[in-house]
Design a protein around this nucleic acid. Structure first.
Length: 486
RNA sequence: GGCCCGUUAGUCAAGCGGUUAAGACACCGGCCUUUCACGCCGGUAACAGGGGUUCAAAUCCCCUACGGGUCACCA
């Protein structure tokens, strides 16, 4: 088995492209075949090397490695279409010789005119083969005018084109619905529909797995395969990813490129897991899978035909699952840039051990790592702010000065604060003052963080440390109007 | 508009002639936690509509509706 992912490098890797790549990868790794990365850069206007690099980075980030490609080479190279022009020429000549392709000199205006005419007559706009019968003289004349020809494929009439799609079953097209289409542009570069056929054949691709938007291109490609007498690969067209309004995922639905998710703090394994479940489902009820799991489970037969709406909430949940189960140093490392950006951590001196404790204290709250900035203010903010009047009311309880006073003493007497001894410390405050937990925990929380909710106090207290705790207690006592004695 | 694909809860999605129509996210409730979150337990909620075929249809066929894709010298 040989499969390929063939992006055109006209921008960053799209979420849909990532899924196509993933499905290809899963299938071929399951069957111990080869995964080929081919760059379809025949649109020279829009293609860029930056995009190419970006796409490769994104694929690698996801963990999708390839066996043959522009960077690693391989026996069927080169793997960039603009470097394969000689190869296409060979096939173009074959088609020309067989009169299955011809030169066309029509201008954009002429084509447009024809389109309008057909439309006006209620027919489908398509190229009608006007230049097909051009004589040598007529051609000369047009050349002399300075016209640069394109090469068109001669589409046979009334031919039924059968495609046996691995996910959709048999799909039929009528050749009469297809006009003679361009296979080589006037600059000599082949179009997608032509290059893809030549390359899939030359590279010995056995399975073409791609997005559904290519389904209606497939009959054109089949026509070329047949005209050239080449063996066709198997086709599998996977459904599109839709935005919340059920139209094709685009910018206005939010982030569409993989980069954006990476930047927002989504983990690659979460994206992989999520994307795999979009249009495919395993047997059984489990939903959390590693790339390795997926590789052994994946199966084209369980790929859904219907398009799927991208559900960010589910991605966030899945990402949270991975955030919670990753080693803390990894999550802390990922969190660091966001903390720096928020001004919580200096560019230079980050105390990793300290950061890890904080990240560990708040990771349960995260759907993406970037959200961390919303939860760590209690540790970093210089100023203690109270979230509401209700919070301040908690501090006004008559037992509060006693509680905080005792806490102060205990903190001062304790050597190093740990979650363990902090837990005991609070317990003993309850006992010594003969108070219910509620009268102790909540005031301590508000006094130290200004908030009604947050991480466990026994995690927060050791992180803050003695000096900061005393400082905040004083601020809180004052805020609540308690007199400071001693 | 022509051609093509699709349609099970708000979303993902199982189901491939006979099921109390799974499961997950979200939502709601409970438990745990002297907070919230996490975790655990439970709940609400779906076969687009209409015709057939069949003893029996979410499953097969047809029509309608809706959604999507595609009709480039873009891929």
């Amino acid at each position: 088995m040989r499969v390929r992912f063939a992006p055109s490098p006209t921008g960053p890797l799209h979420i849909g492209g990532a899924r196509s790549a993933l499905f290809n990868y899963l299938l071929v790794r399951k069957h111990q075949g080869k995964f080929i990365l081919r760059i379809e850069d025949t649109d020279q206007e829009r293609s860029s090397r930056e995009s190419e690099i970006d796409i490769m980075d994104s694929l690698r980030w996801l963990g999708l490695d390839w066996d043959e490609g522009p960077d690693v080479g391989g026996p069927h190279g080169p793997y960039r279409q603009t470097e394969r022009l000689d190869i296409y020429r060979k096939y173009t000549e074959m088609l020309m010789d067989k009169k299955m392709a011809y030169l066309c000199y029509c201008t954009e205006e002429e084509l447009e005119e024809q389109r309008q005419e057909l439309k006006a007559r209620g027919q489908m706009p398509r190229y009608m083969g006007k230049c097909y019968g051009l004589s040598e003289d007529e051609r000369k004349k047009l050349e002399d005018e300075g016209r640069k020809p394109v090469i068109r494929f001669r589409v046979p009439e009334n031919e039924l084109i059968k495609i046996n799609d691995l996910v959709r079953g048999e799909v039929n097209f009528e050749s009469s619905g297809i006009g003679d289409f361009v296979i080589v542009k006037s600059d000599g570069i082949p179009t997608y529909n032509f290059a893809v056929v030549v390359d899939d054949h030359e590279m010995n691709i056995s399975h073409v797995i791609r997005a559904e938007e290519h389904l209606s291109n497939t009959p054109r490609q089949v026509l070329i395969f047949d005209a050239l007498g080449l063996k066709k690969p198997e086709f599998a067209h996977i459904s599109l990813i839709l935005g919340k309004d059920r139209s094709k995922m685009s910018k206005r639905h939010g982030a569409t490129s993989l980069n954006q998710y990476k930047e927002e703090g989504y983990l690659p394994e979460a994206l992989v897991n999520f994307l795999a479940l979009l249009g495919w489902s395993p047997e059984g009820e489990e939903e959390v899978f590693t790339l390795e799991d997926l590789t052994s489970l994946f199966d084209l037969e369980r790929v859904a035909k219907s398009p799927a709406v991208f559900d960010l909430e589910k991605l966030r949940w899945l990402n949270g699952v991975y955030i919670r189960k990753s080693p803390i140093d990894r999550i802390a490392g990922l969190a660091l840039p966001y903390l720096t950006q928020a001004g919580y951590v200096g560019e230079d001196g980050a105390n990793l051990e300290y950061i890890e404790k904080i990240v560990d204290a708040v990771r349960d709250y995260l759907g993406s790592v970037s959200e961390i900035k919303e939860h760590v203010g209690i540790f970093f903010d210089k100023e203690l702010t109270f979230e509401s009047e209700k919070a301040v009311d908690v501090l006004r309880g008559e037992q509060v000065p006693g509680v905080l006073d005792l806490l102060t003493k205990k903190v001062q007497n304790e050597g190093e604060l740990t979650p363990d001894n902090t837990k005991k410390m609070i317990k003993s405050i309850c006992k010594e003052l003969d108070l219910g937990g509620r009268k102790v925990f909540m005031p301590v929380r508000v006094a130290l963080t200004g908030k009604m909710h947050g991480p466990e106090m026994h995690d927060v207290i050791p992180i803050l440390g003695g000096g900061e705790i005393l400082r905040r207690i004083n601020i809180s006592l004052e805020k609540a109007g308690h007199t400071l004695d001693g």
